[in-house]
Nucleic acid binder design. Structure first.
Length: 452
RNA sequence: GGAGAGCUGGCCGAGCGGUCGAAGGCGUCUGAUUCGAAAUCAGAUGUACUCGUGAGGGUACCGUGGGUUCGAAUCCCACGCUCUCCGCCA
């Protein structure tokens, strides 16, 4: 969420910044401006009436004899004041709720370094690492390879769960496990992240915090609990209130919701392997084959909580951490800076890592590393207290600095399933066997290749 | 599934219609003491909104929403969340 005061005090700047990402809605901005003004008026009216009520009631309290005629008289005189206060309170709440809903619907402002452009064609390739493997034969795709090697059983996945689910077997299952473990080990031991193991089901408030809700409910799987179901059947408005996480970002980022952290504890870095669930509504016909786009997959997620002044460098650092995995595995990939129009809803700046898939002759996203500025932190109320700095010391002031919103950064490090796909496709041999990179070998019992 | 308890400031925890933004403790900060530190003593220490150039003023917040009342952290109702015990279960 954007800051209300900053947004309304310079609405044109916000409109221009959001315009960069193709977000234009004049009616919305007009309503925002008028609601913001209305809000001030109502707040002022409410507060002055509250003050009147408080002063009168306190005067009542000071009258010793509650049975006196004076007391009775004053009480009569005050009847109705409370009602008027309540009326204004309700009005203020209504205005603030409408304004809040509008603010929640605004995406984040792109960072100044974010390239111009309205769709992915304007994304900028920052660097390409490694080379496309020269196979010398026609590349098979991961489905053909995996089925040839007995790693993948899509038919049975369909039987037990339906389309867009995957069953891995034998070395397929083991490779998934090995990859996740390699990733976790590198991030913990080499990059200094704290490993956490977190729930796959979260409350709506958590999804609101990381900005999957309220706008992207259709992308999520909801869990209907019995009580909640009954409430719905009884005509109650309340819906199910637990969701399957679409990414580890949600539970991990919300670890510090509603907290005020010590400045000295920053930056904080967490890594988690989680199951991820996506409804993939609206992606009919896209990537229907194999394990590129499925309802359930594993991902190793990196999340950093950082000081705003260090955020830009911290973002680059997280990208480097994710890249390190690709490099250890010897996978050819490129880093792409998303243009303003391709940014995710909450992102301030975003760099995608795209791995080369010979079977598709295309680069495919394997990690998306976003810097959210204070967009998520404001929704989550995740703050830190700055260290008392030299300025305060010099002036002899002993005021504690005010809490300030953190910046959040996250990215996959990496999507496990897609890493497996890339591995198979890039290391494939003409006979359908697949070599295994050295870094992975200790995790698969020393095996150096997969053979049919 | 059954029974019960609770939700108060950075944390713990008292309060149970007006004098309560809220005792006390812990933590933190400042000062005294010290060669320095620990210990001790004294003082300070919530968040947000709003008015004001400023100094400063006002308002809200004791899980959330509603009700009773001149007045609610305190009473009533609903909801949410957390916890405990029993049952079931990885």
């Amino acid at each position: 969420m954007l800051d209300l005061r900053e947004t309304t005090s310079d609405l044109d700047a916000v409109r221009a910044a959001l315009g960069r990402r193709g977000f234009t809605d004049d009616a919305l901005f007009a309503e925002l401006a008028s609601l913001a003004e209305k809000r001030r008026e109502v707040i002022q009216a409410r507060e002055s009436l509250q003050q009147e009520r408080n002063e009168a009631s306190q005067a009542m309290g000071r009258i010793a004899d509650k049975k006196s005629a004076e007391f009775q008289e004053k009480r009569e005189a005050l009847k109705g004041l409370g009602e008027r206060v309540k009326g204004l309170e309700a009005e203020a709440r209504d205005v603030e709720a409408r304004l809040g809903a509008l603010m929640l619907s605004l995406p984040n402002l792109p960072h100044e370094s974010t390239p111009e452009g309205l769709d992915e064609s304007a994304n900028v390739v920052l660097r390409t690492v490694g080379d496309k493997p020269e196979l010398g034969f026609e590349a098979k795709d991961h489905v053909a390879l995996a089925e040839g090697l007995g790693l993948l059983d899509l038919e049975r996945a369909r039987k037990i769960s339906g389309a867009r689910f995957v069953v891995l077997r034998g070395m397929g299952a083991r490779l998934e496990r090995a990859l996740a473990q390699l990733m976790l080990d590198v991030h913990v031991d080499a990059h200094g992240y704290d490993e956490v193991s977190v729930p796959s089901l979260v409350k709506d408030a958590s999804l609101l915090g990381t900005s999957q809700l309220p706008k992207f409910e259709d992308d999520l799987f909801k869990i209907a609990r019995h009580e909640a179901l009954e409430a719905v059947q009884d005509g109650d408005e309340r819906g199910p209130d637990l969701y399957l996480i679409p990414t580890g970002e949600v539970p991990v980022t919300n670890l510090h919701a509603d907290e005020i952290l010590d400045a000295a504890s920053l930056p904080l870095g967490y890594v988690a392997r989680t199951q991820c669930f996506r409804s993939e509504a609206g992606s009919y016909g896209k990537d229907t084959r194999g394990m590129i786009r499925v309802h359930e997959f594993q991902k190793v997620e990196l999340v950093r909580f950082v000081h705003p002044e260090e955020a830009l460098e911290e973002h680059a650092l997280l990208v480097a951490h994710a890249e390190a995995i690709l490099q250890r595995l010897g996978l050819h990939y490129r880093a792409v800076e998303l243009c303003a129009g391709d940014l995710g809803f909450g992102a301030h700046k975003c760099i995608d890592l795209e791995v080369w898939l010979p079977g598709q002759q295309a680069y495919r996203e394997i990690s998306s590393c976003s810097w959210f500025g204070d967009f998520q932190a404001r929704r989550m109320k995740a703050r830190f207290r700055p260290a008392s700095d030299a300025a305060a010391k010099g002036s002899g002031g002993k005021k504690k600095p005010k809490p300030q919103l953190l910046h959040t950064i996250n990215g996959s490090g990496l999507a496990v399933g897609r890493t497996l796909v890339a591995l198979l496709e890039q290391y494939q041999r003409e006979d359908g066997s697949v070599a295994l990179p050295e870094a992975l070998q200790p995790y698969v019992g020393g095996r150096t290749e997969l053979t049919p």
